[in-house]
Design a protein around this nucleic acid. Structure first.
Length: 497
RNA sequence: GGUCGAAUGGCCGAGUGGCUAGGCAGUGCUCUGCAAAAGCAUCUACAGCGGUUCGAAUCCGCUUUCGACCUCCA
C-alpha cells in the first residue's frame, strides 16, 4: 500500500486515510479516569495510539493529538446508590478529590514515560471544561434532544433515534435494546431506560460538584469527550480512538451528543483497540486479574515468573495488531524478551557497520534490500501493522548481523542502498515503533573503565592461550550478569543481561 | 437473550483467493581454543463439516469452542 489505510470501525472497512485539511491531522483519544493506577490493559491502548501518532508524524503530517484526563468521577449507580469513582477513592484514601486526581495523573504520566510513549499535544481535563460542558448541555436542550428532571438533564435517545441513527458504531438496534435493560430503579427519573445523563444533579454529600442552570451537579460521563474534541479539533475531525469497550455506550453517545448539539457527525475515522487479556479473560480491575506496569517490570506478581523490561513489554505488544486480542503469558513474554534483545542488538550495531566503498553490486541482493526498505512503510500503511513491520526489521537485522560478522559481502550492495537500510531501520525502530536500546542503562563511566581493564587482562591471557584464566573471567562475569563475547577479529564486547 | 469478533504449527503471533510472515523453542551445518553471538539450512499450520472456484487457511453456509460489549472499564 502506497498510502495509509485505516480500518474505520464505523463501517468495519479498511479505508484510505485522507485528512480533512491537507497535511494536518486531528486525533482524539479517550484518556484515563485518574482515580487509580493504570494497568497494562490501559497501557496497551495508549501504546497503540502512540504508534498512530508517531507514524502520522513520520508521514509528515502535522498532528494535533488530544488525549483527555477524566478528573471528574462519573456518577454510576451501584446497587441503588450513586457512586462517584474519584470521590469514593478520596474517601478511601482520606484525601481531597483533587489530591486523588493529582496523584494518579502523575502516576499515569510516569507510566507512559516508562514505556516511551510520547506526550499528546493537548491533555485537557474535564474539570477545566465545566463551562463548555454546561454550554453543550444547553445547546442539546435548545435543539430539543434533552430534557431536565429534578436537576439532572437527560439525552432523549428515542427522539434522537427517530431522526438520526443511534448506536451505529456498536451495531445496536435501538428497538431491540429494550429487553436488555434492567428494571428501572424506583428513583430513576429517565423517560426511557435508554436515555443517558448529560448533567447529573448531586447533593452536598458529593465533594465534586459545580453550579449550573439546573442546580449543583456534575457533567455526564460522555460529555467531556464531545466538548473537548470539539473545542480543540473542531466539530468535525479526523480520528477518534479508544478501547473497544468504549464503543458502547460511550462513543455512540458522543456521536449523538455532537449531532444533538451542533448537527454534525463529529468523527471521520473511528479506531478501536482490542483488549489485553490475562489467561484468556479481559484484564480489568473488577475481575481482579489486572497486572500493574510496575508489577510486570519487577515480576512481583503471583502470576508472573519473572520481571520484564519496559521495552520487552512494548515489543511484546507491537508483535500483535492493535485490533486483535492479545493474551499476556509468561511464555509469550519470555519469547518477546529474546526477540527484543535480538532486534535491539542489531540496532546497536548500526553505528558499527559502514560500507567499505567497494561496489560489486548483486542485482538480486540490491533488490531484496530495497524491498525491505519499502516494506516498512507498506506494512505501516496497512492499518499500522506493527507485527509485519517488526518482521521486516528482523530481516534487516539478519543483513546487519551478517555484515558485521563478515558473513555477508557488503560490496554486493551499493553504498546508497546500504545507508538507506540503516537509516530506515533506525527510523522505524526508534521514531515509528518507539523502541530504544536498554543496553547502556547498566553501565557508567566507572564500569566501563573497569570492564576495559578486566578485558585487557583477559586478552593477554588469551594471547598466552591461558584458557583457564580467560574462561574464569568470562564465567565469573557471567555470574554477575555480564555477557562477554569474543569476536572474529580478535575484539571482545560485553553487555549486561 | 441481543450485537460484534475470534479459532493458524511445541508456544506467541501476522497474513493474502494461487507467491515459505516473523519471534521463541527444536534439529543440522558454518564460524570459533571453548563459549556466546551470528549466518545458512531445516521440521512441526491454518477448529470440524459442506459449498463457491481451475485453485481456499483466505470467500459463503452450518457445527463446535472461546472472547468482548449490552452496568464502570482502555
Amino acid at each position: 500500500m502506497e498510502t495509509l489505510h485505516i480500518t474505520n470501525t464505523l463501517n468495519r472497512k479498511k479505508e484510505k486515510f485522507e485528512p480533512l485539511v491537507e497535511g494536518h491531522v486531528g486525533l482524539y483519544v479517550c484518556g484515563p479516569t485518574v482515580y487509580s493506577t493504570a494497568h497494562l490493559g490501559n497501557v496497551r491502548t495508549f501504546l497503540s495510539f502512540d504508534i498512530v501518532y508517531r507514524y502520522l508524524k513520520h508521514l509528515g503530517y502535522k498532528v494535533r493529538y488530544v488525549r483527555n484526563i477524566t478528573d471528574v468521577g462519573h456518577i454510576t449507580n451501584s446497587a441503588g446508590d450513586d457512586v462517584d469513582s474519584i470521590g469514593n477513592q478520596a474517601k478511601l484514601e482520606n484525601l481531597e478529590p483533587m489530591e486523588i486526581v493529582q496523584k494518579y495523573t502523575i502516576s499515569f504520566h510516569d507510566t507512559m514515560k516508562i514505556f516511551n510513549l510520547e506526550a499528546p499535544s493537548i491533555e485537557p481535563t474535564a474539570t477545566g471544561h465545566i463551562v463548555e460542558q454546561i454550554e453543550m448541555v444547553q445547546r442539546i436542550i435548545d435543539n430539543g434532544y434533552a430534557y431536565e428532571k429534578n436537576g439532572s438533564v437527560y439525552f432523549d435517545v428515542p427522539k434522537f433515534a427517530k431522526e438520526h441513527s443511534y448506536g451505529k458504531l456498536s451495531g445496536r438496534n435501538i428497538d431491540e435494546q429494550q429487553d436488555g435493560y434492567r428494571e428501572l430503579d424506583a428513583q430513576d427519573e429517565k423517560n426511557d431506560p435508554r436515555d443517558f445523563a448529560i448533567w447529573k444533579g448531586v447533593d452536598e454529600t458529593f465533594p465534586m460538584r459545580w453550579n449550573s442552570p439546573w442546580g449543583e451537579g456534575v457533567p455526564g460521563w460522555h460529555l467531556e469527550c464531545s466538548v473537548m474534541s470539539t473545542k480543540y479539533l473542531g466539530q468535525k475531525f479526523d480520528i477518534h480512538g479508544g478501547g473497544m469497550d468504549l464503543k458502547f455506550p460511550h462513543h455512540d453517545c458522543e456521536i449523538a451528543q455532537s449531532i444533538g448539539a451542533d448537527g454534525t457527525e463529529p468523527v471521520r475515522y473511528w479506531m478501536h483497540t482490542n483488549m489485553l487479556t490475562m489467561n484468556g479473560q479481559k484484564m480489568s480491575k473488577s475481575l481482579g486479574n489486572s497486572v500493574l506496569p510496575l508489577e510486570l517490570i519487577s515480576g512481583n506478581h503471583e502470576l508472573l515468573e519473572q520481571g520484564y523490561s519496559p521495552m520487552t513489554i512494548r515489543f511484546f505488544m507491537l508483535q500483535s495488531h492493535y485490533a486483535s486480542q492479545l493474551d499476556l503469558s509468561n511464555d509469550a513474554l519470555q519469547a518477546a524478551e529474546k526477540g527484543y534483545k535480538r532486534l535491539a542488538n542489531a540496532f546497536d550495531l548500526l553505528d558499527k557497520v559502514e560500507h567499505n566503498g567497494k561496489e560489486n553490486i548483486s542485482d538480486e541482493e540490491e533488490k531484496a534490500v530495497l524491498k525491505l526498505i519499502q516494506d516498512c512503510s507498506v506494512y505501516m500503511n496497512d492499518d499500522f501493522n506493527t507485527a509485519q513491520t517488526l518482521a521486516v526489521l528482523f530481516e534487516m537485522s539478519n543483513k546487519i548481523n551478517a555484515i558485521y560478522n563478515k558473513q555477508f559481502d557488503i560490496s554486493l550492495l551499493s553504498k546508497a542502498t546500504f545507508d538507506k537500510m540503516k537509516a530506515t531501520f533506525a527510523a522505524f525502530f526508534t521514531n515509528v515503533l518507539g523502541l530504544k536500546s536498554e543496553k547502556s542503562e547498566g553501565s557508567n563511566g566507572v564500569t566501563d573503565g573497569l570492564m576495559d581493564l578486566i578485558l585487557e587482562i583477559r586478552k593477554s591471557a588469551r594471547e598466552n592461550k591461558d584458557w583457564t584464566i580467560s574462561d574464569k573471567i568470562r564465567d565469573e562475569l557471567k555470574a554477575l550478569n555480564i555477557v562477554v563475547k569474543d569476536e572474529k577479529d580478535g575484539g571482545t564486547t560485553w553487555t549486561v543481561g
